[in-house]
Nucleic acid binder design. Structure first.
Lengths: 162, 162
DNA sequence: GATACTATCTATAACAG
DNA sequence: TCTGTTATAGATAGTAT
């Protein structure tokens, strides 16, 4: 966006791409920060590389539940019930988003298969097939339990508030 | 950022704030989209209102595990082991972030207490104290089980790859 | 409330050291 | 590779419809 107009496509030159990434990441976070301030919203940006082993880059630093609860308690009593319901709904939304990510159709089967294939090929033999199966199964089971609980026990009263 | 420079502070006028929000959210998402394309990274933006009951606004639409797995399978065999480890590490990172959010010190106690206080005051009597306790407990228990499994069964071989 | 306009502000591509 | 500079592309505040 400056001296020349850049074509909207992957930048193949490593140095150029890294420079652009750094500048644009900074700009993106700045925009998110301003939006938060101007409109009083919580905004977060997550960036991660598909091809690199680094952890995702996140802005802002993890918004702690503790801070949210503190703010919540400071609100006038009048608004608290509704705020509480919203808090619960947000928790549900977050967990549901993770559910969608973790499950997917055939996710467990595919993941287990792919992981084991590659473990076998590369000799990481400390992990047994059963371990991977157990792990995938366990995650699915627990995720389902949480999902069911959320729907059975909370949604009913959240909806009443509308 | 236009006709006049806007002071970086909460916009109190409702119409102005909503207009600004809409414009800036669009701009933010556009920037994130460009960054993704130019630098080949996965980026996502999450925005939610503290004071409003809407669900968080998310860009892009949920990146499915299925798509990630498809991309993963198309990679040359050479790089797959490392990519697999990175995939697992990302899964761990995501779950751990949620763990930090869900747990926190005394989180269960505080949340249960606050929720029940407000439920009682506002007559939403369809929800029993035990339900809330059960729910909080169950989430914590399941989250702990997943956490333990991840650390016991995966971290060991993830670290070996380093 | 949504859309359109546009003057002006902001972000940044290319470059220099 | 980093930091600084600057011309230009891009985003948007105020406004009108």
């Amino acid at each position: 966006m400056a001296r020349t107009r850049v074509k909207l496509a992957y930048i193949t030159n490593d140095a150029t791409r890294k420079g652009t990434y750094k500048k644009r990441k900074k700009g993106l976070v700045k925009k998110a920060s301003k939006l938060s301030t101007l409109c009083d919203v919580e905004a977060c940006v997550v960036i991660y590389f598909s091809t690199c082993d680094s952890q995702p880059e996140v802005w802002p630093s993890i918004v702690t539940t503790h801070r949210m609860l503190s703010n919540f308690k400071e609100m006038p009593a009048m608004g608290q019930s509704n705020k509480m319901v919203n808090l619960v709904k947000k928790r549900i939304a977050k967990i549901e988003e993770q559910l969608r990510r973790l499950r997917g159709k055939n996710r467990r089967k595919e993941l287990t298969q792919v992981m084991y294939q590659n473990l076998g090929r590369n000799g990481l033999n400390t992990v047994k097939e059963e371990d991977l199966n157990d792990l995938s199964w366990l995650i699915d089971q627990n995720v389902n339990v949480i999902d069911n609980m959320l729907h059975m026990r909370i949604e009913s009263f959240v909806l009443q508030e509308k």
